[in-house]
Write a protein that binds this DNA or RNA. Structure first.
Lengths: 205, 205
DNA sequence: ACTCTAGTTGAACCGAGATTCAAATACGAG
DNA sequence: CTCGTATTTGAATCTCGGTTCAACTAGAGT
C-alpha cells in the first residue's frame, strides 16, 4: 500500500498521475484504473478525492498549463536584452522533443476544445497570455530602438504564438525534418522580418 | 432497418459515420455503438465490415484528410494570378467556423499523433503536401515578378501552413476575437512581409 | 498510550460496450 | 420465380470499467 498522505498532497499526486495517464491514453480515452495505477492507489481512493473524474481531468489540464506558462516566465525573467529575450521565449514555447510531457498534454487539448467549452476556454486563455507576453517584449524592444516593428505588435505577437503552437504539433508528431532547433529557426526567420532585428543567439540553450 | 448496400458503398457510409462520431466523442472516446447509430446500423453490421475498429478509424481520418486537401486544390485550380491564388489558398486552409467538420477532425488528430505513429504519419504527410502547394504558388509568383520573396520559399511555405494550422485550432476553440476573417488577415499580414506583395483581395469569398 | 478520524483497501455489484453467432432477409444471378 | 449468397439483425455471452461500501489502518491530536 502506498503511503498515506494529506488531502492536499494526495490531490497533487492525483493531478500528476492524471496528467501522465492522459498523455498515454488521451483525454477521452483515459480510465479511472489507469490514473489509480499511475498514482499507486486503487480506484476507490481516487474516487474518494475526486468523486467526479471530469473535475480531476480539468484540474490536471489546468495545472499542466499553469506549469508550462510559469516555466516560460521563469526562463526569461533574468534577461534584459530584448533580442535575446525574444529568442529565449521562442525556444521556451517549443517542446524539447517528441516526448515532452508538457506540450504533449497541451496538444491533447486541441481536439477536445472543439467539443468541450471548458477546455476551449483554458486553451484560449493560455493563447492570450502568451500573446501578451510577446507583446511586452516587442514593445519594450521597440521603445529601446532595437526592434523596428513592421506591423502592430499584437499582430506580430499572435503570429509568433501561432507558429510556436503549430511547430509544437509538428515536433510531437515526429516530423522528419522539423526538430526543436529547426522550429526555432523557422520562427526566428519570421521574427526577423517583423522586428528588423538580426536576432542572432549569443548563447546556446 | 436501413437499406441494404454493397460492400463498397457501405464502407463509405461507415467511414462517414465514423468521422461524425469521432468529431462528437473524440478519436479515443468514440464507441462502436455510436458509429453504428450514426450509420443507421447495428454494431454487428459494423463489425461485419470492419472486424477491427482501429482500421475504420484510420480510414476515416485518412478520408477526411484527403477530402480536405482535394477541396483546397479544387478551390484554387482556376485562379491564374499568384497573389489571388495565395489569398484563396490561405482562406481555404481555415475552418469556415467553429463547427467546420473537416477541420474539427484534423484537430482531433493533433493529440493522438503523439501516441499513435499512424496518425502522426498522416498528419506529417498532410503538412508536407500543403507546404509543397504553397511553395509552388510562391515560386510561380516570384518567377512572374509579382512576389519578391524575403526568404527561401520553403521557409515561407512552412510558416504559412503552420499559421493556418494554429489559427484553425483557435477558431475551433471559439477564440473571442479570432474568427476566420481575422485569421486570414493575420496570415496575410505575414505573407505580405514575406512576398513584398500588398495582397489585396479583389473578390470576397 | 489511547482515541478518533481521514485515507485507503478490496470485494461486491452494476451497467455498458465488445464480440460472437445463428437466424432472418434482401437482393442479384440465372 | 427460385436459389444462393451477402448483408444485417438481435439475442446471448463475456469482459471490463465505474461505483458503492463495510472494514481496516496509519497517523494526528490529546
Amino acid at each position: 500500500m502506498s503511503q498515506r498522505k494529506s488531502k492536499a498532497d494526495r490531490r497533487l499526486d492525483l493531478i500528476d498521475a492524471a496528467r501522465r495517464a492522459m498523455i498515454q491514453h488521451g483525454t477521452e480515452g483515459v480510465h479511472l484504473n489507469q490514473i489509480a495505477e499511475e498514482a499507486g492507489l486503487t480506484s476507490g481512493a481516487v474516487l474518494y478525492h475526486y468523486p467526479n473524474l471530469r473535475d480531476l481531468l480539468i484540474e490536471a489540464h489546468q495545472a499542466g498549463m499553469e506549469r508550462f506558462y510559469e516555466r516560460r516566465v521563469k526562463k526569461i525573467s533574468g534577461i534584459a536584452d530584448p533580442a535575446q529575450k525574444l529568442i529565449v521565449t521562442i525556444r521556451s514555447g517549443l517542446p524539447e522533443g517528441p516526448d515532452d510531457a508538457g506540450v504533449r498534454l497541451l496538444c491533447e487539448l486541441g481536439g477536445a476544445a472543439g467539443r468541450n467549452r471548458v477546455y476551449a476556454t483554458l486553451l484560449t486563455t493560455l493563447f492570450d497570455r502568451q500573446v501578451s507576453m510577446y507583446q511586452t517584449i516587442l514593445e519594450t524592444g521597440a521603445a529601446h530602438g532595437v526592434f523596428t516593428l513592421a506591423q502592430d505588435s499584437e499582430i506580430i505577437a499572435r503570429n509568433l504564438v501561432a507558429l510556436e503552437d503549430a511547430y509544437g504539433y509538428r515536433i510531437i508528431a515526429r516530423h522528419h525534418s522539423i526538430d526543436p532547433e529547426k522550429a526555432v529557426e523557422l520562427i526566428l526567420d519570421h521574427a526577423r522580418l517583423a522586428t528588423g532585428n538580426p536576432l542572432k543567439p549569443t548563447t546556446r540553450r
